[in-house]
Design a protein around this nucleic acid. Structure first.
Lengths: 247, 247
DNA sequence: TGGTTGCTTTGATGGAGATCAAGTGGGAAC
DNA sequence: GTTCCCACTTGATCTCCATCAAAGCAACCA
Protein backbone atom coordinates (compact mmCIF):
# COMPACT_ATOMS: atom_id res chain seq x y z
CA UNK A 1 0.00 0.00 0.00
CA UNK A 2 1.37 3.37 -1.00
CA UNK A 3 -0.16 6.20 0.95
CA UNK A 4 1.37 9.59 1.12
CA UNK A 5 1.24 11.38 4.39
CA UNK A 6 -0.52 14.36 2.86
CA UNK A 7 -2.85 14.86 -0.03
CA UNK A 8 -1.78 17.42 -2.53
CA UNK A 9 -4.80 18.66 -4.37
CA UNK A 10 -3.18 21.53 -6.16
CA UNK A 11 -3.84 19.67 -9.40
CA UNK A 12 -7.53 19.25 -8.66
CA UNK A 13 -8.40 22.25 -10.77
CA UNK A 14 -7.99 20.10 -13.85
CA UNK A 15 -9.95 17.27 -12.37
CA UNK A 16 -13.46 17.36 -13.77
CA UNK A 17 -14.75 15.41 -10.82
CA UNK A 18 -13.45 17.70 -8.14
CA UNK A 19 -14.29 15.44 -5.22
CA UNK A 20 -13.74 17.22 -2.01
CA UNK A 21 -13.99 13.97 -0.15
CA UNK A 22 -12.19 11.50 -2.25
CA UNK A 23 -11.30 12.82 -5.63
CA UNK A 24 -11.60 9.76 -7.74
CA UNK A 25 -8.95 10.90 -10.15
CA UNK A 26 -6.59 12.80 -7.95
CA UNK A 27 -6.64 10.33 -5.12
CA UNK A 28 -6.28 7.46 -7.49
CA UNK A 29 -2.72 8.54 -7.99
CA UNK A 30 -2.17 8.25 -4.31
CA UNK A 31 -4.52 5.51 -3.27
CA UNK A 32 -4.94 2.73 -5.74
CA UNK A 33 -7.18 1.06 -3.19
CA UNK A 34 -9.75 3.78 -3.71
CA UNK A 35 -9.56 3.25 -7.43
CA UNK A 36 -10.10 -0.45 -7.07
CA UNK A 37 -13.38 -0.14 -5.17
CA UNK A 38 -14.73 2.73 -7.19
CA UNK A 39 -17.72 2.57 -9.53
CA UNK A 40 -20.18 4.97 -11.09
CA UNK A 41 -23.94 5.10 -10.93
CA UNK A 42 -26.41 7.27 -12.82
CA UNK A 43 -29.84 8.41 -11.70
CA UNK A 44 -32.61 10.16 -13.56
CA UNK A 45 -34.18 13.36 -12.32
CA UNK A 46 -36.87 12.58 -9.78
CA UNK A 47 -35.47 9.17 -8.94
CA UNK A 48 -34.89 8.32 -5.31
CA UNK A 49 -31.29 7.34 -4.78
CA UNK A 50 -31.71 6.15 -1.21
CA UNK A 51 -34.89 5.67 0.78
CA UNK A 52 -35.04 6.77 4.38
CA UNK A 53 -34.42 3.72 6.54
CA UNK A 54 -32.78 1.69 3.79
CA UNK A 55 -29.56 -0.14 4.27
CA UNK A 56 -26.78 1.91 2.77
CA UNK A 57 -24.18 -0.22 1.10
CA UNK A 58 -22.17 2.55 -0.48
CA UNK A 59 -20.76 5.99 0.09
CA UNK A 60 -19.69 8.40 -2.59
CA UNK A 61 -19.65 11.81 -4.15
CA UNK A 62 -21.91 13.58 -6.55
CA UNK A 63 -20.06 13.99 -9.82
CA UNK A 64 -22.74 15.72 -11.88
CA UNK A 65 -26.22 17.01 -11.21
CA UNK A 66 -27.97 17.89 -8.00
CA UNK A 67 -29.33 15.63 -5.30
CA UNK A 68 -31.32 16.56 -2.24
CA UNK A 69 -31.75 15.20 1.27
CA UNK A 70 -35.39 15.22 2.26
CA UNK A 71 -37.43 14.48 5.36
CA UNK A 72 -41.14 13.80 5.15
CA UNK A 73 -43.80 13.79 7.85
CA UNK A 74 -46.66 11.32 7.91
CA UNK A 75 -49.09 13.88 6.58
CA UNK A 76 -46.87 14.68 3.63
CA UNK A 77 -45.20 17.86 4.74
CA UNK A 78 -41.63 17.71 3.49
CA UNK A 79 -38.50 19.59 4.30
CA UNK A 80 -35.31 19.46 2.34
CA UNK A 81 -32.45 19.26 4.79
CA UNK A 82 -29.53 19.41 2.44
CA UNK A 83 -28.54 20.06 -1.12
CA UNK A 84 -25.82 17.99 -2.72
CA UNK A 85 -23.92 19.73 -5.47
CA UNK A 86 -21.11 18.20 -7.52
CA UNK A 87 -18.19 17.25 -5.25
CA UNK A 88 -20.41 16.79 -2.20
CA UNK A 89 -20.16 13.59 -0.27
CA UNK A 90 -23.00 11.20 0.53
CA UNK A 91 -23.04 8.50 3.12
CA UNK A 92 -22.35 7.74 6.73
CA UNK A 93 -19.35 5.58 7.43
CA UNK A 94 -20.23 3.44 10.40
CA UNK A 95 -23.98 3.76 9.92
CA UNK A 96 -26.38 1.14 8.77
CA UNK A 97 -29.58 2.90 7.77
CA UNK A 98 -30.08 6.12 5.86
CA UNK A 99 -31.61 8.82 8.04
CA UNK A 100 -33.50 10.52 5.18
CA UNK A 101 -34.38 10.21 1.53
CA UNK A 102 -31.77 11.12 -1.04
CA UNK A 103 -33.35 12.18 -4.31
CA UNK A 104 -31.99 13.12 -7.69
CA UNK A 105 -33.27 16.64 -8.34
CA UNK A 106 -31.69 16.68 -11.77
CA UNK A 107 -30.02 13.81 -13.58
CA UNK A 108 -27.22 12.70 -11.31
CA UNK A 109 -23.99 10.82 -11.69
CA UNK A 110 -22.36 9.54 -8.57
CA UNK A 111 -18.98 8.11 -7.91
CA UNK A 112 -19.51 5.35 -5.40
CA UNK A 113 -17.40 3.21 -3.13
CA UNK A 114 -18.71 0.07 -1.55
CA UNK A 115 -19.15 0.88 2.09
CA UNK A 116 -17.33 -2.04 3.70
CA UNK A 117 -14.07 -1.64 1.78
CA UNK A 118 -14.28 2.12 2.19
CA UNK A 119 -14.62 1.78 5.94
CA UNK A 120 -11.71 -0.61 6.06
CA UNK A 121 -9.68 1.81 4.04
CA UNK A 122 -10.70 4.56 6.43
CA UNK A 123 -9.54 2.54 9.40
CA UNK A 124 -6.10 2.05 7.90
CA UNK A 125 -5.79 5.51 6.43
CA UNK A 126 -6.06 8.11 9.16
CA UNK A 127 -6.12 11.12 6.90
CA UNK A 128 -9.23 9.86 5.09
CA UNK A 129 -10.98 9.70 8.45
CA UNK A 130 -9.66 13.14 9.23
CA UNK A 131 -10.84 14.49 5.90
CA UNK A 132 -14.26 13.00 6.51
CA UNK A 133 -14.45 14.66 9.92
CA UNK A 134 -13.62 18.01 8.40
CA UNK A 135 -16.30 17.55 5.77
CA UNK A 136 -18.87 16.52 8.32
CA UNK A 137 -18.05 19.59 10.38
CA UNK A 138 -18.57 21.69 7.25
CA UNK A 139 -21.94 20.09 6.68
CA UNK A 140 -22.86 20.67 10.30
CA UNK A 141 -22.00 24.34 10.01
CA UNK A 142 -24.05 24.57 6.84
CA UNK A 143 -27.01 22.87 8.49
CA UNK A 144 -26.84 25.24 11.43
CA UNK A 145 -26.55 28.28 9.24
CA UNK A 146 -29.62 27.03 7.40
CA UNK A 147 -31.47 26.79 10.71
CA UNK A 148 -31.13 30.57 11.00
CA UNK A 149 -32.62 30.90 7.53
CA UNK A 150 -35.55 28.61 8.35
CA UNK A 151 -36.24 30.01 11.78
CA UNK A 152 -35.78 33.73 11.44
CA UNK A 153 -35.69 34.96 7.88
CA UNK A 154 -38.58 36.34 5.86
CA UNK A 155 -39.68 34.74 2.60
CA UNK A 156 -37.83 37.35 0.61
CA UNK A 157 -34.64 36.84 2.62
CA UNK A 158 -34.96 33.09 2.26
CA UNK A 159 -35.13 33.32 -1.53
CA UNK A 160 -32.19 35.70 -1.61
CA UNK A 161 -30.21 33.37 0.65
CA UNK A 162 -30.83 30.41 -1.61
CA UNK A 163 -29.98 32.33 -4.75
CA UNK A 164 -26.75 33.63 -3.30
CA UNK A 165 -25.72 30.15 -2.21
CA UNK A 166 -26.30 28.74 -5.65
CA UNK A 167 -24.65 31.74 -7.23
CA UNK A 168 -21.53 31.44 -5.12
CA UNK A 169 -21.39 27.70 -5.51
CA UNK A 170 -22.05 27.79 -9.22
CA UNK A 171 -19.86 30.77 -9.89
CA UNK A 172 -16.77 28.62 -9.94
CA UNK A 173 -18.29 26.49 -12.67
CA UNK A 174 -20.28 28.87 -14.81
CA UNK A 175 -18.95 32.04 -16.34
CA UNK A 176 -19.02 35.36 -14.65
CA UNK A 177 -20.32 38.10 -16.88
CA UNK A 178 -18.09 40.93 -18.00
CA UNK A 179 -19.54 43.35 -15.51
CA UNK A 180 -19.04 40.98 -12.63
CA UNK A 181 -22.59 39.74 -12.87
CA UNK A 182 -23.26 36.08 -12.23
CA UNK A 183 -25.28 33.92 -14.58
CA UNK A 184 -26.62 30.46 -13.91
CA UNK A 185 -29.54 28.13 -14.42
CA UNK A 186 -31.69 27.38 -11.43
CA UNK A 187 -31.32 23.66 -10.88
CA UNK A 188 -34.48 23.46 -8.75
CA UNK A 189 -38.18 23.67 -9.45
CA UNK A 190 -40.19 26.22 -7.49
CA UNK A 191 -41.52 23.36 -5.44
CA UNK A 192 -38.05 22.08 -4.56
CA UNK A 193 -37.03 25.60 -3.57
CA UNK A 194 -40.11 25.82 -1.39
CA UNK A 195 -39.23 22.53 0.28
CA UNK A 196 -35.75 23.77 0.98
CA UNK A 197 -36.93 27.11 2.33
CA UNK A 198 -39.92 26.00 4.37
CA UNK A 199 -42.33 27.93 2.13
CA UNK A 200 -45.03 27.14 -0.40
CA UNK A 201 -44.28 27.17 -4.10
CA UNK A 202 -46.69 30.09 -4.59
CA UNK A 203 -44.76 32.22 -2.13
CA UNK A 204 -41.50 31.29 -3.83
CA UNK A 205 -42.93 32.32 -7.17
CA UNK A 206 -44.24 35.63 -5.84
CA UNK A 207 -40.97 36.55 -4.16
CA UNK A 208 -38.94 35.71 -7.25
CA UNK A 209 -41.29 37.89 -9.29
CA UNK A 210 -40.80 40.69 -6.78
CA UNK A 211 -36.99 40.44 -6.87
CA UNK A 212 -37.19 40.48 -10.64
CA UNK A 213 -39.46 43.51 -10.75
CA UNK A 214 -37.07 45.39 -8.48
CA UNK A 215 -34.05 44.51 -10.56
CA UNK A 216 -32.23 42.49 -7.92
CA UNK A 217 -32.21 39.61 -10.38
CA UNK A 218 -33.01 39.14 -14.05
CA UNK A 219 -34.88 36.17 -15.41
CA UNK A 220 -34.80 34.74 -18.91
CA UNK A 221 -37.46 32.11 -19.13
CA UNK A 222 -38.16 30.53 -15.78
CA UNK A 223 -34.81 29.20 -14.81
CA UNK A 224 -32.05 31.30 -16.32
CA UNK A 225 -30.95 33.81 -13.71
CA UNK A 226 -28.62 36.79 -13.91
CA UNK A 227 -27.45 38.46 -10.74
CA UNK A 228 -26.09 41.88 -11.62
CA UNK A 229 -24.91 42.67 -8.11
CA UNK A 230 -24.19 39.82 -5.73
CA UNK A 231 -23.58 42.27 -2.89
CA UNK A 232 -27.08 43.65 -3.29
CA UNK A 233 -28.51 40.15 -3.24
CA UNK A 234 -26.59 39.28 -0.10
CA UNK A 235 -27.94 42.37 1.58
CA UNK A 236 -31.42 41.24 0.65
CA UNK A 237 -30.55 37.92 2.27
CA UNK A 238 -29.66 39.70 5.49
CA UNK A 239 -26.36 37.98 5.10
CA UNK A 240 -23.43 39.23 7.10
CA UNK A 241 -21.39 36.06 6.83
CA UNK A 242 -19.12 35.11 3.98
CA UNK A 243 -21.39 32.16 3.45
CA UNK A 244 -18.41 29.90 3.56
CA UNK A 245 -20.27 27.18 5.40
CA UNK A 246 -23.31 27.04 3.25
CA UNK A 247 -23.80 24.04 1.00
CA UNK B 1 1.31 5.07 26.16
CA UNK B 2 -1.31 2.55 27.09
CA UNK B 3 -4.30 2.60 24.83
CA UNK B 4 -6.78 -0.21 24.63
CA UNK B 5 -8.10 -1.08 21.24
CA UNK B 6 -11.68 -0.58 22.39
CA UNK B 7 -13.35 1.61 24.92
CA UNK B 8 -15.45 -0.20 27.44
CA UNK B 9 -17.98 2.18 28.87
CA UNK B 10 -20.09 -0.34 30.69
CA UNK B 11 -18.95 1.31 33.91
CA UNK B 12 -20.03 4.76 32.78
CA UNK B 13 -23.33 4.44 34.58
CA UNK B 14 -21.54 5.28 37.79
CA UNK B 15 -19.66 8.10 36.23
CA UNK B 16 -21.32 11.40 37.08
CA UNK B 17 -19.74 13.03 34.11
CA UNK B 18 -21.01 10.63 31.48
CA UNK B 19 -19.04 12.09 28.64
CA UNK B 20 -20.09 10.58 25.41
CA UNK B 21 -17.04 11.94 23.74
CA UNK B 22 -14.29 11.56 26.21
CA UNK B 23 -15.47 10.55 29.62
CA UNK B 24 -13.03 12.30 31.85
CA UNK B 25 -13.23 9.66 34.50
CA UNK B 26 -13.77 6.53 32.53
CA UNK B 27 -11.28 7.34 29.83
CA UNK B 28 -8.76 8.37 32.39
CA UNK B 29 -8.35 4.73 33.21
CA UNK B 30 -7.55 4.04 29.63
CA UNK B 31 -5.89 7.19 28.43
CA UNK B 32 -3.73 8.90 30.97
CA UNK B 33 -2.86 11.41 28.27
CA UNK B 34 -6.40 12.69 28.35
CA UNK B 35 -6.23 13.01 32.10
CA UNK B 36 -3.04 15.01 31.90
CA UNK B 37 -4.46 17.70 29.64
CA UNK B 38 -7.85 17.90 31.33
CA UNK B 39 -9.13 20.85 33.34
CA UNK B 40 -12.49 22.19 34.48
CA UNK B 41 -14.14 25.54 33.90
CA UNK B 42 -17.32 26.99 35.37
CA UNK B 43 -19.62 29.55 33.82
CA UNK B 44 -22.55 31.46 35.27
CA UNK B 45 -25.96 31.47 33.67
CA UNK B 46 -26.08 34.04 30.91
CA UNK B 47 -22.34 34.14 30.44
CA UNK B 48 -20.94 33.73 26.97
CA UNK B 49 -18.53 30.81 26.88
CA UNK B 50 -17.25 31.44 23.38
CA UNK B 51 -17.90 34.39 21.09
CA UNK B 52 -18.57 33.82 17.43
CA UNK B 53 -15.34 34.38 15.55
CA UNK B 54 -13.10 33.92 18.58
CA UNK B 55 -10.09 31.71 18.56
CA UNK B 56 -10.96 28.45 20.22
CA UNK B 57 -8.16 27.09 22.29
CA UNK B 58 -10.01 24.22 23.87
CA UNK B 59 -12.50 21.48 23.24
CA UNK B 60 -14.52 19.70 25.89
CA UNK B 61 -17.75 18.35 27.22
CA UNK B 62 -20.55 19.85 29.22
CA UNK B 63 -20.50 18.24 32.65
CA UNK B 64 -23.39 20.08 34.30
CA UNK B 65 -25.90 22.66 33.18
CA UNK B 66 -27.09 23.66 29.74
CA UNK B 67 -25.32 25.64 27.07
CA UNK B 68 -26.66 26.83 23.76
CA UNK B 69 -25.23 27.54 20.33
CA UNK B 70 -26.62 30.76 18.96
CA UNK B 71 -26.47 32.70 15.73
CA UNK B 72 -27.37 36.36 15.59
CA UNK B 73 -28.16 38.60 12.64
CA UNK B 74 -27.07 42.22 12.44
CA UNK B 75 -30.53 43.45 13.33
CA UNK B 76 -30.67 41.32 16.44
CA UNK B 77 -32.76 38.40 15.30
CA UNK B 78 -31.30 35.31 16.93
CA UNK B 79 -31.66 31.61 16.31
CA UNK B 80 -30.45 28.93 18.62
CA UNK B 81 -28.83 26.24 16.48
CA UNK B 82 -28.03 23.70 19.13
CA UNK B 83 -28.60 22.78 22.72
CA UNK B 84 -25.76 21.29 24.73
CA UNK B 85 -26.85 19.03 27.55
CA UNK B 86 -24.52 17.27 29.98
CA UNK B 87 -22.24 14.87 28.10
CA UNK B 88 -22.41 16.85 24.87
CA UNK B 89 -19.20 17.80 23.18
CA UNK B 90 -18.11 21.32 22.25
CA UNK B 91 -15.39 22.27 19.84
CA UNK B 92 -14.04 21.73 16.39
CA UNK B 93 -10.80 19.84 16.15
CA UNK B 94 -8.92 21.31 13.27
CA UNK B 95 -10.78 24.62 13.33
CA UNK B 96 -9.51 27.97 14.37
CA UNK B 97 -12.50 30.23 14.89
CA UNK B 98 -15.82 29.47 16.54
CA UNK B 99 -18.67 29.61 14.03
CA UNK B 100 -21.28 30.80 16.54
CA UNK B 101 -21.74 31.99 20.10
CA UNK B 102 -21.78 29.41 22.86
CA UNK B 103 -23.71 30.65 25.87
CA UNK B 104 -24.37 29.27 29.30
CA UNK B 105 -28.15 29.00 29.59
CA UNK B 106 -27.89 27.80 33.17
CA UNK B 107 -24.80 27.60 35.32
CA UNK B 108 -22.41 25.37 33.43
CA UNK B 109 -19.42 23.24 34.29
CA UNK B 110 -17.28 22.09 31.44
CA UNK B 111 -14.52 19.56 31.24
CA UNK B 112 -11.98 21.01 28.87
CA UNK B 113 -8.95 19.82 27.00
CA UNK B 114 -6.46 22.20 25.48
CA UNK B 115 -7.00 21.99 21.77
CA UNK B 116 -3.46 21.46 20.56
CA UNK B 117 -2.69 18.46 22.78
CA UNK B 118 -6.13 17.06 22.12
CA UNK B 119 -5.58 17.23 18.39
CA UNK B 120 -2.22 15.57 18.73
CA UNK B 121 -3.81 12.85 20.79
CA UNK B 122 -6.47 12.48 18.15
CA UNK B 123 -3.86 12.04 15.46
CA UNK B 124 -2.19 9.22 17.34
CA UNK B 125 -5.36 7.60 18.63
CA UNK B 126 -7.56 6.58 15.71
CA UNK B 127 -10.54 5.55 17.77
CA UNK B 128 -10.84 9.01 19.30
CA UNK B 129 -11.04 10.45 15.80
CA UNK B 130 -13.54 7.77 14.92
CA UNK B 131 -15.62 8.52 18.00
CA UNK B 132 -15.58 12.20 17.15
CA UNK B 133 -16.79 11.44 13.64
CA UNK B 134 -19.67 9.40 15.00
CA UNK B 135 -20.62 12.21 17.35
CA UNK B 136 -20.44 14.80 14.64
CA UNK B 137 -22.68 12.65 12.46
CA UNK B 138 -25.13 12.46 15.37
CA UNK B 139 -25.11 16.22 15.68
CA UNK B 140 -25.62 16.57 11.96
CA UNK B 141 -28.63 14.29 12.08
CA UNK B 142 -30.02 16.26 15.01
CA UNK B 143 -29.51 19.55 13.19
CA UNK B 144 -31.27 18.21 10.11
CA UNK B 145 -34.15 16.84 12.11
CA UNK B 146 -34.47 20.25 13.69
CA UNK B 147 -34.65 21.81 10.24
CA UNK B 148 -37.91 19.92 9.73
CA UNK B 149 -39.19 21.37 12.99
CA UNK B 150 -38.21 24.91 12.02
CA UNK B 151 -39.38 24.72 8.45
CA UNK B 152 -42.61 22.79 8.57
CA UNK B 153 -44.09 22.45 12.03
CA UNK B 154 -46.73 24.65 13.64
CA UNK B 155 -46.07 26.56 16.86
CA UNK B 156 -47.90 23.91 18.85
CA UNK B 157 -45.92 21.10 17.24
CA UNK B 158 -42.69 22.97 17.81
CA UNK B 159 -43.37 23.28 21.54
CA UNK B 160 -44.35 19.62 21.76
CA UNK B 161 -41.19 18.64 19.88
CA UNK B 162 -38.99 20.59 22.25
CA UNK B 163 -40.71 19.22 25.33
CA UNK B 164 -40.42 15.65 24.14
CA UNK B 165 -36.74 16.09 23.38
CA UNK B 166 -36.05 17.43 26.83
CA UNK B 167 -38.28 14.80 28.38
CA UNK B 168 -36.52 11.95 26.64
CA UNK B 169 -33.11 13.39 27.28
CA UNK B 170 -33.85 14.22 30.89
CA UNK B 171 -35.74 11.01 31.56
CA UNK B 172 -32.53 9.11 32.11
CA UNK B 173 -31.53 11.57 34.80
CA UNK B 174 -34.75 12.55 36.54
CA UNK B 175 -37.21 10.12 37.96
CA UNK B 176 -40.07 8.68 36.03
CA UNK B 177 -43.33 8.87 37.93
CA UNK B 178 -45.09 5.74 39.07
CA UNK B 179 -47.61 5.88 36.28
CA UNK B 180 -44.93 6.25 33.66
CA UNK B 181 -45.28 10.01 33.63
CA UNK B 182 -42.15 12.09 33.19
CA UNK B 183 -41.26 14.97 35.48
CA UNK B 184 -38.58 17.56 34.90
CA UNK B 185 -37.71 21.21 35.25
CA UNK B 186 -37.58 23.28 32.10
CA UNK B 187 -34.01 24.47 31.85
CA UNK B 188 -34.91 27.25 29.44
CA UNK B 189 -36.68 30.58 29.72
CA UNK B 190 -39.60 31.22 27.40
CA UNK B 191 -37.34 33.47 25.41
CA UNK B 192 -34.68 30.80 25.00
CA UNK B 193 -37.34 28.34 23.90
CA UNK B 194 -38.57 30.89 21.39
CA UNK B 195 -35.05 31.35 20.05
CA UNK B 196 -34.68 27.63 19.63
CA UNK B 197 -38.05 27.22 17.95
CA UNK B 198 -38.06 30.26 15.70
CA UNK B 199 -41.02 31.79 17.53
CA UNK B 200 -41.68 34.75 19.81
CA UNK B 201 -41.77 34.30 23.54
CA UNK B 202 -45.44 35.30 23.60
CA UNK B 203 -46.34 32.50 21.22
CA UNK B 204 -44.34 30.04 23.31
CA UNK B 205 -46.19 31.13 26.43
CA UNK B 206 -49.59 30.87 24.75
CA UNK B 207 -48.93 27.41 23.35
CA UNK B 208 -47.68 26.11 26.67
CA UNK B 209 -50.82 27.49 28.31
CA UNK B 210 -52.91 25.72 25.70
CA UNK B 211 -51.15 22.37 26.17
CA UNK B 212 -51.64 22.80 29.91
CA UNK B 213 -55.33 23.62 29.58
CA UNK B 214 -55.84 20.53 27.45
CA UNK B 215 -54.04 18.27 29.88
CA UNK B 216 -51.18 17.28 27.58
CA UNK B 217 -48.81 18.64 30.21
CA UNK B 218 -49.08 19.81 33.81
CA UNK B 219 -47.26 22.82 35.17
CA UNK B 220 -46.27 23.58 38.74
CA UNK B 221 -44.99 27.09 38.87
CA UNK B 222 -43.53 28.16 35.57
CA UNK B 223 -40.84 25.59 35.03
CA UNK B 224 -41.78 22.32 36.67
CA UNK B 225 -43.35 20.11 34.03
CA UNK B 226 -45.15 16.78 34.28
CA UNK B 227 -45.87 14.81 31.15
CA UNK B 228 -48.52 12.20 31.94
CA UNK B 229 -48.38 10.58 28.51
CA UNK B 230 -45.26 10.93 26.41
CA UNK B 231 -46.96 9.17 23.52
CA UNK B 232 -49.66 11.81 23.44
CA UNK B 233 -47.06 14.56 23.47
CA UNK B 234 -45.17 12.97 20.62
CA UNK B 235 -48.36 12.80 18.60
CA UNK B 236 -48.81 16.49 19.24
CA UNK B 237 -45.30 16.96 17.95
CA UNK B 238 -46.21 15.18 14.72
CA UNK B 239 -43.34 12.94 15.56
CA UNK B 240 -43.06 9.62 13.81
CA UNK B 241 -39.39 9.09 14.51
CA UNK B 242 -37.90 7.65 17.64
CA UNK B 243 -36.21 10.97 18.16
CA UNK B 244 -32.93 9.17 18.48
CA UNK B 245 -31.04 11.85 16.64
CA UNK B 246 -32.33 14.85 18.45
CA UNK B 247 -30.05 16.69 20.83
C1' DT C 1 -43.20 47.52 53.71
C1' DG C 2 -42.88 49.01 49.35
C1' DG C 3 -40.18 49.23 45.21
C1' DT C 4 -37.46 47.29 41.64
C1' DT C 5 -36.39 43.76 38.42
C1' DG C 6 -36.88 39.76 35.55
C1' DC C 7 -39.79 36.32 33.84
C1' DT C 8 -44.30 35.23 32.40
C1' DT C 9 -49.13 35.63 31.01
C1' DT C 10 -52.87 37.59 28.55
C1' DG C 11 -55.29 40.72 25.37
C1' DA C 12 -55.99 43.36 20.98
C1' DT C 13 -54.61 44.09 16.43
C1' DG C 14 -52.25 43.57 12.07
C1' DG C 15 -49.65 41.35 8.50
C1' DA C 16 -46.83 37.78 6.17
C1' DG C 17 -47.50 33.86 4.17
C1' DA C 18 -50.74 29.70 3.46
C1' DT C 19 -54.54 28.12 1.01
C1' DC C 20 -57.75 27.79 -2.66
C1' DA C 21 -58.53 28.71 -7.40
C1' DA C 22 -57.82 30.17 -12.13
C1' DG C 23 -55.09 31.04 -15.78
C1' DT C 24 -50.50 31.30 -18.70
C1' DG C 25 -46.95 29.50 -21.55
C1' DG C 26 -43.80 26.40 -23.47
C1' DG C 27 -42.30 21.89 -24.82
C1' DA C 28 -43.28 17.16 -26.31
C1' DA C 29 -46.34 13.76 -28.41
C1' DC C 30 -49.67 12.81 -31.71
C1' DG D 1 -51.23 22.20 -36.07
C1' DT D 2 -53.48 20.60 -32.11
C1' DT D 3 -53.56 18.68 -27.76
C1' DC D 4 -51.85 17.57 -23.52
C1' DC D 5 -49.05 18.17 -19.70
C1' DC D 6 -46.27 20.32 -16.53
C1' DA D 7 -44.06 24.06 -14.29
C1' DC D 8 -45.12 28.36 -13.21
C1' DT D 9 -47.77 32.80 -12.29
C1' DT D 10 -51.29 35.58 -10.41
C1' DG D 11 -55.42 36.71 -7.72
C1' DA D 12 -58.62 36.44 -3.62
C1' DT D 13 -59.20 35.16 0.89
C1' DC D 14 -58.07 33.29 5.32
C1' DT D 15 -55.30 32.13 9.37
C1' DC D 16 -51.61 31.65 12.28
C1' DC D 17 -48.33 33.97 14.45
C1' DA D 18 -45.84 38.54 15.24
C1' DT D 19 -46.32 42.80 17.26
C1' DC D 20 -47.61 46.14 20.59
C1' DA D 21 -49.29 46.86 25.12
C1' DA D 22 -50.50 45.98 29.83
C1' DA D 23 -50.60 43.50 33.83
C1' DG D 24 -49.43 39.41 37.09
C1' DC D 25 -46.14 37.29 40.01
C1' DA D 26 -42.11 35.82 42.57
C1' DA D 27 -37.52 36.98 44.20
C1' DC D 28 -34.68 40.24 45.96
C1' DC D 29 -33.22 44.53 48.06
C1' DA D 30 -33.47 48.78 50.63
Amino acid sequence: MTVKAQFDHSNCEDCPIRHRAVCARCDADELEELESIKYYRSFEAGQTIIWCGDQMNFVGSVVAGIASLTQTMEDGRTQMVGLLLPSDFVGRPGREAAPYDVQATTDVVMCCFRKKPFEELMATTPHIAHRLLQMTLDELDAAREWMLVLGRKTAREKIASLLSIIARRDASISQKGLTGSIVFDLPLTREAMADYLGLTLETVSRQISALKKEGVITLEGKRHVTIPDLGRLMEEAGDDSDGGFLV
